[in-house]
Amino acid sequence: MTIRVVVADDQELVRSGLVMILEAQQDIEVVAEAEDGVAAVDAVRRHSPDVALLDVRMPGADGIEACRTISALSTCRTVMLTTFDTDEYVFEALQAGASGFLLKDVRRDDLVHAVRVAARGDSLLAPSVARRLVEEFTQRAARPRAALDCGRLDALTARERETLLLLGHGLSNAEIAARLVVSEHTVKTHVGNVLSKLGLRDRVQAVICAYETGLIAAGHPPHGGAGLAASPVPARN
Rank of each mutant, 00 (worst) to 15 (best):
Ile70Gln: 05
Ser128Met: 14
Asp105Cys: 10
Arg132Trp: 13
His190Met: 15
Glu184Pro: 05
Asp42Tyr: 14
Asp202Leu: 00
Val207Ala: 08
Leu103Phe: 12
Arg203Val: 02
Val7Gly: 05
Ala130Lys: 09
Gly224Glu: 10
Val112Trp: 09
Leu53Asp: 04
Gly214Arg: 01
Leu125Trp: 09
Asp202Val: 00
Arg46Phe: 12
Thr157Tyr: 00
Lys104Cys: 08
Ala52Gln: 04
Tyr211Asp: 06
Gly227Ile: 06
Gly199Arg: 12
Arg145Gln: 11
Gly168His: 12
Ala40Val: 04
Ala40Asp: 01
Ala174Leu: 05
Ser123Phe: 04
Arg143Val: 14
His185Asp: 15
Asp55Met: 11
Gly60His: 05
Gly225Gln: 13
Asp149Arg: 13
Asp42Pro: 03
His47Ser: 08
Leu156Lys: 05
Arg179Val: 04
Asp50Tyr: 01
Arg68Leu: 12
Tyr89Ser: 12
Ala174Gln: 14
Gly214Ala: 02
Ser196Gln: 09
Ala206His: 00
Asp27Met: 00
Pro221Phe: 05
Lys188Thr: 14
Ser128Asn: 09
His113Phe: 14
Cys209Asn: 05
Ala98Asn: 09
Gly192Glu: 02
Ala229Tyr: 02
Ile21His: 00
Thr69Leu: 10
Gly227Arg: 14
Val182Leu: 10
Ser123Asn: 08
Pro127Val: 06
Leu133Ile: 15
Val134Cys: 07
His190Lys: 02
Val31His: 07
Thr157Asn: 00
Ala119Asp: 03
Asp202Trp: 00
